[in-house]
Simulated assay, not measured.
Amino acid sequence: MPRALAPAPAPEENHSQVVKAQLQLREMILAGEMAAGERISELVLAERLGISRTPIRAALMRLEQEGMLEATAGGRGYRVRVLSEADVSDAIELRGTLEGLAARMAAERGAEAPLLARAERCLDAIDRVLDAAGWGDEAFSRYVALNSEFHDILLDMSGSSFMQRELERVKRLPFASPSGFVVARSESPRAHRSLLLAQEQHRAVLEAIEHREGARAEALMKEHSRIARRNLREAMRSPETAGVPGAQLIRAGR
């Protein structure tokens, strides 16, 4: 008798495997396990990750959409993309522009009281992290998590599902997330000063939203993204750049 075929994986299982592969591959690229310009082998990745080639192929397509990979000549595969400093700067500016619009919408439409309270608690937690003695990598990691949370709350305040989808898409671009390229060395005095300035801007943006000052909130968020762009320029010219995850993917200039 012919052997019975195994049941096809459920759609949820397929989706889970694609997401798992996507996250693992992104981490490998940023960790330098795949060199800039290196061609990607679906078969090798499938064996290495223990995942079938179908979700690997879907994950590679998603990473191309994020800008981490590019199709090879003839469209028969992918290679790790080499990003210019200008590419990354443009992605950060795009994120800042959209966040500025989201802040304006939050101010003009009126943010809900529970969201304002959550944002205030988040900023209080950031203050405690920045004021703590013994600033270093552990405190920096805590800051990164809280910073991401605050930016997510601001996005929720906009009340726009369309804006949320677009900003989530932009934040997946290489180094375009709010903490995607902050500083090369988290324990340096310069890094700490930069984060203190960013926190002052957080407070100012929240105040503008509470007072329904849409234009001010938008301008502050656009200015806020310039910190990340400045840090990018400084890090690319620093010998400490090698310590930044994914820095090997970026070349100076255009």
Rank of each mutant, 00 (worst) to 15 (best):
L63M: 12
A111Q: 08
H151S: 12
D131W: 11
E168V: 00
A6E: 15
E234A: 05
A107S: 08
G136A: 15
R185D: 14
I51E: 06
A217Q: 07
F162R: 14
E213V: 01
R121D: 15
T97A: 13
E218W: 05
K222W: 09
R76W: 05
L195K: 06
T72N: 12
F150C: 06
E187L: 08
R233P: 00
D124L: 10
R104K: 06
H15K: 14
L23K: 13
V129G: 05
C122I: 00
R3L: 11
A35Y: 00
L197P: 00
R81W: 02
N14P: 00
D137P: 05
L116Q: 04
Q199F: 01
P9C: 09
E138W: 01
L232T: 01
A73Q: 12
M61T: 13
S16L: 11
A184P: 00
D152V: 01
E99G: 01
A176L: 07
A31N: 15
N14W: 10
L130Q: 11
L220G: 02
L69R: 10
R237S: 02
W135H: 04
M157H: 01
A133P: 13
L116S: 09
R233V: 05
A184M: 03
A176H: 08
R172I: 00
A125G: 12
S179K: 05
E66S: 02
G100R: 10
A139C: 08
G37C: 00
R216V: 12
V244N: 04
S161T: 14
V183W: 00
R128H: 08
Q199E: 13
G246L: 04
L115R: 11
G110A: 09
L167G: 02
V88W: 04
S148K: 07
I92H: 10
Q248H: 15
E120P: 00
M28H: 12
L30Q: 09
H224L: 06
A111Y: 03
E240P: 00
D87A: 07
E27K: 12
A204G: 09
E66K: 08
L101N: 12
A8C: 02
A31Q: 15
I209Y: 13
G67F: 05
L43T: 14
R48C: 04
G134L: 03
L83Q: 02
P11A: 06
L45R: 03
N231S: 11
R39W: 07
S177G: 09
S225A: 15
E70I: 07
E47R: 11
I56W: 07
N147G: 06
W135A: 02
E13K: 08
I56A: 03
F181L: 15
A103N: 03
S158I: 01
D131L: 14
S16E: 14
F150L: 12
G74L: 10
H192A: 05
F150W: 15
D152F: 03
E168M: 04
D152N: 13
L60Y: 10
E223N: 14
I29K: 07
F162L: 14
L206P: 08
G243I: 01
M236G: 04
R203L: 06
L5H: 11
A103M: 00
R53F: 02
S84T: 15
L167F: 10
R39H: 12
L69H: 09
K171D: 11
I40L: 09
S41Y: 02
A198R: 13
L25D: 02
P114T: 06
R121V: 04
A8G: 02
R118L: 08
K171W: 15
G243L: 11
P114R: 13
V80G: 04
I92S: 12
